[in-house]
Design a protein around this nucleic acid. Structure first.
Lengths: 129, 129
DNA sequence: GTCTCTGCAAATTGTTTGCAAACTG
DNA sequence: CAGTTTGCAAACAATTTGCAGAGAC
């Protein structure tokens, strides 16, 4: 059974901002600014609990701190290779409707992740100068 | 300038096996079985060098050791949520042909990753018993 | 009251780095 | 021989865990 707590409420509030995909470190910093004696372990434990109970989505990063998404409606993301900034992408590629179960023979597929990699607007501008 | 070496050659040989996506640890174990005094750092350094020179592809895993792919032809993967086994997926979703540059406005997209998650045949069988 | 959640510190995991010696072209 | 690569050990970064006390239902 999952109980409420101040840190958990704050995390959910932070992740309710549209198109916002903060890293664990960023979430920790924001929670700590409001609840100063929050430990990083609490943030990790809450993010894990919320993810496994399906209330938020974990965006696993290859390197660096994981990011999280509070929007449960299926969509994709684009990730800046330079600063790591992650934004929502709403593309109709048809995968969302497709019956994933027979996409791969002999594999019970239940979900997918589509990520675009590139350079975000700010980093592109910075590179020019 | 990138020079050849026994460990590097072994890594490339291991990754030339079709539909084989070993983790760093697995690659290390296989190289070490042939070249017993290979250090793990050598494997990491070679994988990084081969990846950045475009000779192999790194499959970043959210958790656990990264996997690598020696097949440079663009394709997708499916990943077993239980054992981590990763297999090639050749699907014509049209993304490969699409001009990625205008998939996301204000974002210079240069590449994408599509991964399916589910349960592989072996793990499905094991779960039944 | 019971079971979950918390802060803290220590432990783990996957990866990277500094160094002097060995190897490659 | 100049520049790259190696093994080793130590350093790192992100995350997880053990514990005793505080908090939620």
């Amino acid at each position: 059974m999952i109980k409420r707590s101040r840190p958990k409420d704050e995390i959910l509030r932070i992740l309710s901002v549209p198109d916002h995909h903060p890293t664990t470190e960023e979430i920790f910093a924001e929670v700590k600014s409001l609840l100063p004696d929050t430990g990083i372990a609490t943030v990790y434990r809450n993010l894990e609990k919320l993810t496994s109970s399906g209330m938020i989505i974990k965006l696993e990063r290859g390197s660096g701190s994981s990011r999280y998404d509070g929007n449960l409606v299926k969509h994709d993301h684009c990730v800046c290779k330079i600063c790591g900034k992650t934004s929502d992408v709403w593309l109709n590629h048809g995968l969302g409707d497709k019956d994933l179960s027979d996409v791969v023979p002999g594999f019970e597929v239940s979900d997918y992740t589509l990520e675009f990699f590139g350079v975000c607007g700010e980093c592109a501008k910075r590179k020019k100068n």
